[in-house]
């Protein structure tokens, strides 16, 4: 009897622990989406595909230089920042609310069209990756995949997930600090709130949005490398991760970094515990049931004010 209790305790402790670690990884996957929506009221349906692009980018970098996968971040982050900046400036800015207004169209067109454009972008990215690479699954080999940190006799945590969790927390703190304490960060928040008044402060909402989009994809770059290091991936895997990101954002509320982490952790724990008690196939279902419940009870997210 006592042993049963012990194992139940261990199961739950393991679930909480690995769920929390998984949550950090989920948070990194979602920050970009949350930032995009929080700042530009723009739902980026290609977000998941950009994660996969980053993973392929890391593979490409590793093809050139045989280094630890973590070093690829040094290349992936700036490239993804540049891509984010560019697509906002040359593509998405042209279909924004302000752009619609300038052309004498209803603002609602400016709300809808980025949705269509990023949906199209998602298709183009998937097909592009298929053409550039192939349909075979890729993975970023690393030494940490099978390592674990033992916390007790029957309690351990994957080293890779632990490293990801630390990176996630560091990243969330960095992004939040940037938003709170720098002129550029304040401009991002101001332009999100009221672009017209932001212009009165001397901010250029279009430029500010480009920076925000760059940061958003830079975080997606980190997430993409994490994805590549923890599992295999294929050109059309993006939408799966988009769903995860949406889940996290729904749970945590938009535009808050703490919300992303807490949302990620709750989703992670729910998935791992569902998997433990109802079998591996219940993992995803458990997560979605939670998301549906939150949508039904508190549609503005658990942590939004």
């Amino acid at each position: 009897m006592n042993e049963d209790l012990y194992w139940i305790g261990i199961d739950i402790a393991n679930g909480l622990l690995s769920g929390t670690m998984l949550g950090g990884y989920y948070a990194v996957i979602s920050i970009g989406l949350a930032l995009n929506f929080g700042v530009m009221r723009q739902v980026n349906l290609a977000h998941g595909d950009w994660l996969i692009v980053a993973a392929y980018l890391a593979v490409a970098f590793l093809g050139i230089a045989n280094v630890s996968p973590f070093w690829t971040l040094a290349g992936v982050i700036p490239v993804m920042y540049g891509v984010g900046w560019l697509i906002q400036r040359v593509l998405l800015a042209r279909v924004s609310v302000q752009a619609a207004e300038r052309r004498g169209m209803a603002p609602s067109i400016g709300l809808m069209s980025p949705l269509l454009v990023t949906f199209g972008m998602s298709i183009v990215i998937g097909q592009g990756l298929l053409a550039l690479f192939d349909a075979n699954a890729q993975a970023i080999r690393n030494d940490l995949s099978y390592a674990a940190v033992r916390l007790g006799e029957d309690l351990s945590v994957s080293t890779l997930r632990l490293v990801f969790f630390v990176i996630a927390v560091a990243m969330l703190i960095a992004v939040q600090t940037f938003l709170n304490t720098t002129h550029a960060g304040r401009a991002i928040r101001a332009a999100a709130d009221d672009p017209e008044v932001a212009a009165l402060m001397g901010m250029h909402p279009a430029r500010v949005h480009a920076v925000a989009s760059g940061i958003s994809l830079a975080t997606a770059g980190v997430a993409g490398v994490m994805i590549g290091m923890s599992r295999s991936f294929q050109p059309f895997d993006g939408p799966t991760f988009l769903l995860v990101a949406f889940g996290v954002v729904i749970l945590g509320g938009l535009g808050s970094m703490t919300g992303a982490l807490v949302g990620g952790v709750i989703l992670g724990i729910t998935q791992v515990l569902s998997g433990t008690y109802f079998g591996p196939s219940a993992q995803l279902v458990g997560g979605y049931i939670l998301i549906l419940l939150v949508l039904a009870v508190k549609p503005q997210g658990l942590f939004s004010k």
Binding site: N180, H183, R186, A187, R189, A190, D193, D194, E196, V197, A198, L200, M201, G202, M203
Partner: peptide
Amino acid sequence: VPEGRRLFARMSVEDNLLAGAFL
């Protein structure tokens, strides 16, 4: 100073003022 004040509602007093020092 716009009609209806139009402050950055989710920001603190100090952040609103510092936003005014963006130039």
